[in-house]
Amino acid sequence: MVMHENINQVVRTVRHYLPDLWSTAAHSTSFQNTRSGYLRSRITLLSVVWGLLIILWIPLDLVFLSENQSAPIAIARFMLGCGLLMTAWHSHHHTKLYQSQWSLILLVIMINAFYIYCISVLDFPQAYSGAEYGYTLLPILHVAILTILPLTLKESLGLLAITALCQIGVDVKAQRLFTPEVMAGYWLQNVLALMVIWSQQSKLYMLMRLYRQATLDPLTGIYNRRMLLQLAQKSLEACEQNQQTFSVLLFDIDKFKRVNDTWGHGAGDDVLKRFTHFIQSQIRKTDLFGRYGGEEFILFLPNCDHQAAQDIANRMLDSIRSLNLDINAVSTQLRITSSVGISSLSHGDSLSSLIERADRALYECKDAGRDCARFHPLGYIYSQNERRKAVA
C-alpha cells in the first residue's frame, strides 16, 4: 500500500513538472529571468575557466605535436580561447534568457568547430597515439561540461545533437565510424549523455521547486505578496518609461469568514483556489495577479487606463456572481461575490500609493454593501475616511 502511494506520488510529480522540464513554453516570465541569471553566471564562469585553460595548453601542443601541426592548432587554440572569453563577457552583460541560450549555443559551436579543425590538421588519423589521443576525448568533454547547467530537455538534446553530428561527421570522414574502438566510444558517450541529461533535469527541477517555494503562494499557486510587489514595481517602472497607463484592482471575497465558519477551512481553501483559477482564466499574459493576504487578491494591469479597469472589474463581478464553485471539502457548490477597489496611475504616484488608494476604494465597497467596484482617483477623499472593521 505504501509503495503504491509512493509510485502514485512520483507519477503525479512527473506529470506536473514534465511540461516545464521539456521546454520553456510553460515557464513564467519571472522564472525565465531567474533561470537566465543562473545560466548566465555558469556560462560566464565556464567560458572564462575553459578559455584560460585552452590558451595555457598551447605550449604543450608546441612541444608534443609536429611542426606542421603544432602551429595551426596553437593558433586555433588561441582564437578559441579569445572566443570563449568574449562569450563570457557577452553572457555577463546580457540578462535575457534568449541571450543566455545563444551564448551557450555559440560556446558549443565554437568548441566543436575547434575539434573538427584539429582533427583535420591531424589529417583524420585512423588510430590515435601519443599527443593525438587527447583530441579523441574532446567530444566526451563537450558532453560532460553541460552537466553543470539547468537545461530543459529540448535544450539539452539540441546541444548534444551538435556534438554528436560533429563527431559522426569526423568519423565518417576518417572512414572509421564502425570500428570496434569507435563504437565502444559511442556507447560510453551515450551513457555519459544520459547521466548529463539526468543531472540537468535534476538541477532544473530543484530550481523550479526553490523558485516556487520562494515566490508562489502554497495554497493557490499564484504569486505571493513579496514576489508580486517586486514584479509590479518593475512593470510600473516600464509603463512610466513608455508613458503607458497602469491600473490596480484589489479584490476581496465578500464575507469569506462565513464560509469558513459554516463549511470549515477546507471549504474556504477550495473557494480560494477556485476563485484564483477563475481570475487567471480572465486576464492577459502581461497582467500580474497574486494573493495579497487572506482572502484579498491584487491584479495589476499594465497599459490599462481607469475606464478600462472599471469595465474589467464590472465584467468580472458579473461573472463571479454567476459562478458555481465546486467545493471538494463538502461535495457541494457555493456561490460567492467579491468587492473590487480600483486605482490608476497618475503623475506623482508610486506603487504603494496606488495600492493604498485601491485599498481605500475597497473599504468604500464594503460600506456600500459589498459586491461592487469603486474607483479612487488621485486626491480623492472618501467621506468616511475613518476606517472601521468590516462586518464578516
Results as ranks from 00 to 15, higher is better:
residue 204 L to S: 06
residue 328 N to E: 04
residue 298 I to S: 03
residue 248 V to P: 06
residue 39 L to T: 13
residue 193 A to G: 14
residue 44 T to G: 03
residue 212 R to L: 00
residue 142 H to C: 15
residue 192 L to C: 11
residue 310 Q to T: 15
residue 327 I to E: 01
residue 7 I to K: 14
residue 227 M to N: 03
residue 29 T to I: 14
residue 237 E to K: 12
residue 91 S to H: 10
residue 106 L to V: 15
residue 187 W to M: 13
residue 249 L to V: 06
residue 40 R to N: 12
residue 23 S to E: 04
residue 156 S to N: 12
residue 328 N to Y: 00
residue 125 P to Q: 06
residue 321 R to F: 00
residue 324 N to F: 00
residue 26 A to S: 14
residue 118 C to D: 10
residue 53 L to P: 15
residue 268 G to N: 06
residue 214 A to Q: 13
residue 302 P to A: 00
residue 247 S to P: 11
residue 82 C to D: 01
residue 253 I to T: 10
residue 112 N to M: 01
residue 273 K to D: 00
residue 278 F to A: 02
residue 182 V to K: 08
residue 52 L to R: 09
residue 36 S to Y: 04
residue 273 K to E: 03
residue 115 Y to E: 03
residue 98 Y to P: 11
residue 359 D to T: 11
residue 312 I to D: 00
residue 182 V to Y: 04
residue 190 N to V: 15
residue 40 R to S: 14
residue 137 L to Y: 10
residue 97 L to F: 13
residue 109 I to P: 10
residue 82 C to H: 06
residue 202 S to L: 05
residue 367 D to L: 12
residue 168 I to T: 14
residue 141 L to Q: 09
residue 372 C to T: 14
residue 337 T to S: 11
residue 127 A to D: 09
residue 299 L to A: 03
residue 76 A to P: 10
residue 338 S to A: 13
residue 53 L to E: 12
residue 60 L to G: 10
residue 30 S to M: 07
residue 281 S to M: 06
residue 98 Y to T: 15
residue 311 D to E: 11
residue 85 L to G: 04
residue 25 A to F: 01
residue 50 W to D: 08
residue 385 N to G: 11
residue 308 A to Q: 14
residue 59 P to A: 05
residue 328 N to S: 07
residue 264 G to R: 09
residue 212 R to G: 05
residue 78 F to V: 08
residue 53 L to I: 15
residue 179 T to A: 09
residue 79 M to N: 04
residue 219 L to G: 09
residue 238 A to M: 02
residue 355 I to W: 05
residue 164 A to E: 03
residue 88 A to W: 05
residue 28 S to P: 09
residue 152 T to Y: 06
residue 381 I to P: 01
residue 379 G to N: 12
residue 319 S to C: 04
residue 92 H to C: 05
residue 277 H to N: 14
residue 232 A to W: 01
residue 272 L to V: 05
residue 225 R to Y: 02
residue 271 V to D: 06
residue 20 D to F: 12
residue 365 C to F: 04
residue 325 L to E: 01
residue 159 L to Q: 12
residue 369 G to M: 02
residue 135 Y to Q: 06
residue 271 V to E: 04
residue 347 H to K: 15
residue 85 L to N: 07
residue 68 N to G: 05
residue 373 A to I: 11
residue 44 T to F: 08
residue 143 V to C: 12
residue 362 L to K: 09
residue 35 R to Y: 01
residue 41 S to R: 14
residue 194 L to N: 12
residue 156 S to V: 04
residue 107 L to M: 13
residue 173 K to M: 08
residue 290 G to K: 08
residue 147 T to Q: 14
residue 64 F to T: 15
residue 129 S to M: 03
residue 307 Q to F: 00
residue 271 V to H: 11
residue 159 L to C: 02
residue 325 L to T: 07
residue 191 V to P: 11
residue 299 L to N: 11
residue 93 H to A: 02
residue 109 I to Q: 12
residue 65 L to M: 08
residue 27 H to D: 15
residue 332 T to A: 11
residue 179 T to I: 07
residue 240 E to Q: 14
residue 338 S to I: 09
residue 210 L to R: 13
residue 317 L to N: 07
residue 268 G to W: 05
residue 56 L to M: 11
residue 321 R to G: 01
residue 227 M to P: 00
residue 144 A to I: 14
residue 379 G to K: 10
residue 273 K to P: 04
residue 41 S to W: 07
residue 387 R to T: 07
residue 17 Y to D: 09
residue 133 Y to D: 04
